[in-house]
Design a protein around this nucleic acid. Structure first.
Length: 224
DNA sequence: ACATTAAGTGATT
DNA sequence: AATCACTTAATGT
């Protein structure tokens, strides 16, 4: 079918543009043939705590936040953000071991991704060097982020965590100009803190000239 | 003009 | 630093 060929070459381009680590031509063709194009809009939950994972996502557009949740009293804490070029490492370990998801992933803006069925994820590991590298690299990257995330929680004050959060957030969102469209309450939820605390810290950051505050939106000002 | 919701503030623990 | 109670301000109808 001509349509299929169009689809395949489109996906090949996507991989080429967003996943330069993946190099083998055969591999790219395989991804293009077997992967599913998935689109989701902001706010959609892609994977929830307890659900089985049957796809590994290759994100090429948008932003996704990965959170851990306390089942009692819906407290939530950010683990990391995913954006174009990223994949969810947790999904590897989940689908390899056929365990339920320990995390929740939620689109924070309209996102697009390629879903690779798990049987191929496994198969390509032994077959393609660059796939193996890609998987290992993303594991490594995520581990580093997790460790630094744990550091922030354990050793840093809320103020530093907030600043990091804002920076991470503005990176993920393809912001026209560092505008973060969120309420203080939403940020507080992500950081497992209270709205008032966030408001006060944001005020401090504003006095330091690091942000500009408006209703429903925070503008991150460039550092000197 | 009014209601609703976001944000700011002070006091309490 | 969390929570409460309250005020002030922005926004939608």
């Amino acid at each position: 079918m001509i349509l299929d060929e169009v689809k395949i070459s489109r996906i090949q381009r996507l991989i080429h543009d967003h996943f330069p680590q993946i190099t083998e031509k055969d591999l790219i063709t395989e991804i293009a043939t077997h992967a599913q194009e998935i689109k989701c809009s902001a706010g959609e939950i892609l994977m929830d705590y307890g659900s089985y994972v049957k796809m590994v996502p290759l994100i090429y557009k948008g932003g996704i936040k990965v959170t851990r949740e306390d089942p009692d009293e819906g407290r939530e804490i950010i683990l990391y953000f995913l954006q174009s070029g990223d994949t969810c490492s947790m999904s590897f370990s989940c689908c390899m071991t056929n365990k339920r998801s320990e995390i929740r992933t939620e689109a924070i803006e309209d996102s697009e991704l390629l879903g690779v069925p798990i049987q191929y994820v496994d198969k390509w590991m032994t077959q393609y060097q660059s796939w193996k590298n890609f998987v290992m690299m993303s594991y490594d990257q995520r581990m580093v982020e997790m460790v630094s995330s744990i550091d922030s929680i354990a050793f840093e004050g809320l103020d530093e965590r907030l600043m990091k959060y804002l920076e991470a957030r503005s990176q993920v969102i393809a912001s026209s100009d560092n505008i973060i469209a969120m309420t203080h309450q939403e940020i507080a939820n992500d950081l497992n803190s209270s709205r008032e605390a966030i408001s006060r810290l944001l005020k401090k950051l504003e006095h330091q000239g690091k942000v500009e505050l408006h209703r429903n939106r925070i503008i991150l000002l460039a550092e000197e």
